[in-house]
Design a protein around this nucleic acid. Structure first.
Length: 586
RNA sequence: GCACCCGUAGCUCAAUUGGAUAGAGCGUCUGGCUUCGGACCAGAAGGUUGUGGGUUCAAUCCCUGCCGGGUGCACCA
């Protein structure tokens, strides 16, 4: 229940009494004016115009007149008619009391709601491919997915974050093929060094990524490559032979790299599924469905014919009998429902796979599954030079970005704090760097392509995570300098001292936080939170420059300290939803 | 060819889901630390919202015709 709900109810009730039977308004008809000078809550009167057969302006005037003759709603201070709008200004002291006391009471719980009714929802994201590079496209996936996971939880769902790792597809065979290829000198050297034991997990994972990129290039040059890769794929699928052994070893390298990335980004999954663990079951299901004629043979391949649903055809097996990825996705989808009794199963995957998920979803439906399988698509990440492509080498890897970010954050931090230890600089720089990386991926709405400009991403001013973190650090700094803060009355009891225009605007903004959480949840849109936090921080910084806090008279100072503490709490709450850490000092 | 997405300030993005004067960041120009942290703040310049029509009291948003860009559609994941 948000702070405005009761106020809106009271206003609606009173207006409906005046309107009598002629017309009705709903709470949803009340909006927030674009400028706080106009008022706090507003009723546009256009909708009433038809029923009452009067101009919106006249209706606003009429309502204003009627309202002034009845007892005021206690939370409303004044009402004005501005053209076709009826604008309510809320009682500042009451609102301040209500908002601040709720933040003080709920703290990190402030802004959450129970809308999801504890329904169990699984959300799958960060689907890495072993034997391939982890690039900034994956970073968008994991940042977005993790934020949605937190946001769903804040909206009262039981969100279960899981990850699915493709460790068994044809891309694996390609990499393995090139690793042991006689022309591959880089790999030979790498294996030599490996024996000496000085290679880190990160290096191993990255090496595989490079090998995959080379493999796709080499395949075009070597005439027998396709056949050879096919044979390797078979060997791996039957789990025998030297390539199977190589697969087992190298798979570990990639997974260790993923774990390292998840640790850095502080992303935790309830469970990780692997393609190789569900594929056997998948083959059985495919055979079964083939017998039941749900799947059929066409041009040598095994497919689901979905033409009559306008969804084309979905390939399960290639002509040579090897698996395409629905073979693993189907049993996994079933396993999820069975094991976790889900209300809904969400997949955070690039928007380009929209058709594939519609097909998969249709097949599940044909098999009798009624629960929703939801594809949560987001648009891709490209570079200013154009699309990312491992073939042309036009790619920014996760590693490359995070290293540059860290270096940059360290330099900046060191410049500002010459007295800090290397340890402390390192810790703070990490919080800044990882926060910045996530924020860059989340601040744009999900249906927009991100044109990722690394030079711009490396800056820490403007609409960035650092701006939000800096705002918190600054508030902290003030709170630290106030030595008697513990003994002060809580701010909500001093509401009368927070009557400045900018203070009221800040209070209004704080009150709207829960609305941002709701909206972000409904639309699966973390950028709503990012946008809200930035606006709040902007408003605070403006206030901060305008109004003295520590130098204000004792009572006012006390109240203002309470206010900025609340601002800090709300920014921190929002950052948690985005998976970004707050920083005490930076 | 069929289907979906996008087009807003020089660049990157917003716009309370159809509402009040289309707003931010970056960049450019100007100003602000002997004053709570300058990773900050204030101000200025910058717009025929790709384009023609339609629906509506009201359109950046809905419908439609063009133009431009992107993506998906059978053995890639």
């Amino acid at each position: 229940m948000d702070i405005f709900e009761k106020i809106k109810k009271d206003i609606v009730k009173q207006i409906n009494q005046i309107l009598g039977k002629k017309a009705v308004i709903k709470e949803a008809d009340l909006v927030f004016p674009p400028d706080s000078k106009m008022g706090d809550i507003s009723l546009p009167c256009f909708g009433l115009s038809k029923e009452l057969k009067k101009s919106p302006n006249d209706i606003a005037q009429m309502l204003l007149k009627e309202l002034s003759s009845v007892p005021k709603v206690s939370s409303v201070e004044s009402i004005v008619a501005a053209g076709p709008y009826l604008n309510f200004t809320l009682n500042k002291i009451n609102l301040t009391k209500k908002v601040l006391s709720e933040i003080e009471k709920k703290q990190q719980e402030f802004g959450k709601n129970n809308g999801g009714k504890k329904k169990r929802v699984m959300i799958e994201y960060s689907n890495g491919n072993t034997h391939k590079e982890y690039h900034i496209g994956h970073l968008r996936n994991i940042s977005y997915g993790d934020a949605v996971n937190h946001i769903l939880a804040a909206n009262g769902f039981e969100a279960i974050p899981v990850s699915y790792i493709n460790d068994f597809g044809i891309h694996v065979a390609k990499t393995l093929w090139w690793l042991y290829h006689k022309d591959n000198k880089t790999a030979k050297n790498f294996f030599e060094n490996l024996k000496k034991g000085s290679t880190t997990p990160g290096e191993k994972g990255r090496f595989l990524g490079q090998m995959y990129a080379e493999a796709t290039k080499q395949m075009e040059l070597k005439s027998q490559a396709k056949e050879e890769v096919g044979l390797i794929m078979k060997q791996v699928e039957t789990r025998k032979g030297e390539y199977y052994k190589l697969w087992k070893e190298t798979r570990k390298w990639s997974i260790e790299l993923f774990d390292q990335i998840y640790r850095e980004l502080k992303v935790r999954f309830r469970e990780t599924f692997y393609e190789n663990e569900v594929i056997e079951e998948g083959f059985k299901i495919v055979a079964d469905l083939y017998e039941k004629h749900i799947l059929v043979k066409s041009q040598g391949a095994v497919i689901a014919d979905l033409e009559k649903y306008n969804l084309g055809v979905l390939l399960f097996l290639r002509s040579d009998g090897t698996a395409l990825y629905p073979v693993a996705d189907l049993p996994l989808a079933m396993l999820k429902f069975k094991k976790y009794k889900l209300h809904k199963s969400i997949y955070v995957v690039d928007i380009r796979q929209g058709l594939y998920f519609e097909q998969l979803s249709k097949v599940m439906e044909l098999l009798g599954y009624k629960q929703e399988l939801m594809h949560l698509g987001y648009d891709f990440v490209k570079l200013p030079e154009g699309m990312m492509s491992s073939r042309t080498g036009n790619i920014v890897t996760y590693q490359e970005l995070s290293e540059k970010m860290l270096t940059n954050a360290k330099t900046e931090t060191r410049n500002k704090h010459e007295d800090w230890t290397e340890n402390k600089i390192d810790m703070v720089a990490k919080q800044i760097a990882y926060g910045a990386m996530k924020f860059e991926m989340i601040k744009v709405s999900r249906d927009k392509t991100i044109t990722f400009d690394i030079e711009k991403a490396l800056r820490f001013d403007g609409y960035t995570a650092a701006y939000l973190q800096y705002t918190c650090a600054r508030i902290n700094s003030i709170l630290r300098k106030d030595d008697v803060v513990e003994t002060r009355l809580i701010a909500s009891l001093q509401a009368k001292n927070l009557a400045e225009g900018k203070e009221h605007a800040l209070i209004m903004k704080l009150a709207k936080y829960s609305l941002a959480v709701e909206l972000a949840g409904q639309n699966y849109e973390p950028s709503e939170i990012a946008k809200y936090l930035f606006e709040l921080a902007q408003q605070f910084n403006d206030y901060y420059h305008d109004v003295p806090i520590l130098k204000a008279p004792e009572e006012i100072k006390s109240a203002r300290l309470g206010l900025i503490k609340a601002v800090k709490q709300v920014i921190a709450n929002g950052l948690v939803l985005l998976g970004i850490e707050t920083i005490e000092e930076m």
